[in-house]
C-alpha cells in the first residue's frame, strides 16, 4: 500500500467518512425540521399542517 500513499490516504479518508456518516446517521432524505409544535397536536392532530400538505403527492403508477 505504501507505493500509493495518496491513494491509501484517500481510501482511509473515505473509510473514515463512511464510518462517521454511519455513526452520525447522515441522510439524504427530504426532512424538514419544525420548531415549537404546539402540545395541542396530541389532542387534535388536525391542527398541525404538514409542510407537504399542500403539494401534489401522487407521482407514480400507470
Amino acid at each position: 500500500m505504501s507505493s500509493h500513499p495518496l491513494f491509501t490516504l484517500y481510501g482511509v479518508l473515505l473509510l473514515g467518512a463512511a464510518s462517521i456518516a454511519d455513526y452520525s446517521g447522515w441522510s439524504l432524505s427530504r426532512i424538514n425540521e419544525v420548531k415549537n409544535v404546539p402540545k395541542s397536536v396530541r389532542d387534535n392532530p388536525g391542527v398541525y399542517r404538514s409542510v407537504y400538505g399542500m403539494s401534489p403527492h401522487y407521482s407514480g403508477g400507470k
Binding site: 409544535v37 409542510v51 403527492h57
Partner: peptide, 19 residues
C-alpha cells in the same frame, strides 16, 4: 403518508412525506 416525528416535550418536529 404525511409524517411528523414530534418531540413531546420540546415541540421540535421532523416533518416529511412519503409516497
Amino acid at each position: 403518508f404525511h409524517y411528523a416525528l414530534i418531540n413531546q416535550d420540546t415541540g421540535h418536529a421532523f416533518d416529511f412525506g412519503r409516497e
